[in-house]
Amino acid sequence: MIKQRIASLGKSTLDTFESLGRATIFLCQASIGIPGKEGFHLWLRQMHFIGVMSLAIVLVSGLFIGMVLGLQGYTILVDFGAEDALGQMVSLSLLRELAPVVAALLFAGRAGSALTAEIGLMKATEQLSSMEMIGVDPLRRVVAPRLWAGFVSLPLLTIGFSVVGIWGGYLVGVDWLGVNEGSYWSNMQASVSFIDDVGNGLLKALVFALVVTWIAVFQGYDLVPTSEGISRATTRTVVYSSLAVLGLDFVLTTLMFGEL
């Protein structure tokens, strides 16, 4: 009994490392796309599906989160008579944490799952195999443009999230609750550093973009080509990438802001 347990532990460890290894080789092979105009067009198409189509959900969420931050921040700060620091609170929370993390989670749900399902379906209907047999590497033609589109899209979406969120905080704090407009902006400007806050936030977004897109395309490419396999892989994409984003966020925050 115990021997069996230990053996199954060993098996799952080996399986995990094996699939990590496969995923790494996969990433290396898929990172180089098709050069030239054709590759650019393939990338552009994916930018449309992955980036532009995710814009609405990301911006709307950003607006609401900014508004909630404005409201919550005000009720806390007003007790200390420090409601002038609202801009600082809203902008720092968004730039450092909420924008990269929430945008990445939304991106995993909206674009990541769609990527897995799309590539998985192409695999299930033998489109990837037939592309290989035509002599075209599906890693370069199908996966690489998606990988790069995801890698570029998420940081742009994160910027949009921050901008809309800061505006949402302004809307609630200044327009509705009467915080002084000048102090909203000037407190923000005095405390936000472009390199440390905006830059680190963007760095987080880049890391999340790589991880989420990588998980999504790998799950799609590696799945068991049945309808059950596709649904499992889609779920795995969302679960794995959400966990990876939250875990990595902690690690990155410690490195960037933890003064270790």
Partner: peptide
Amino acid sequence: KRRELFRLRRRMGMLFQSGALFS
């Protein structure tokens, strides 16, 4: 090698059971 294999495949055609057209 991967590259040579893809070159060899240009000399082959394969008809899949499902057709496997690009949808």
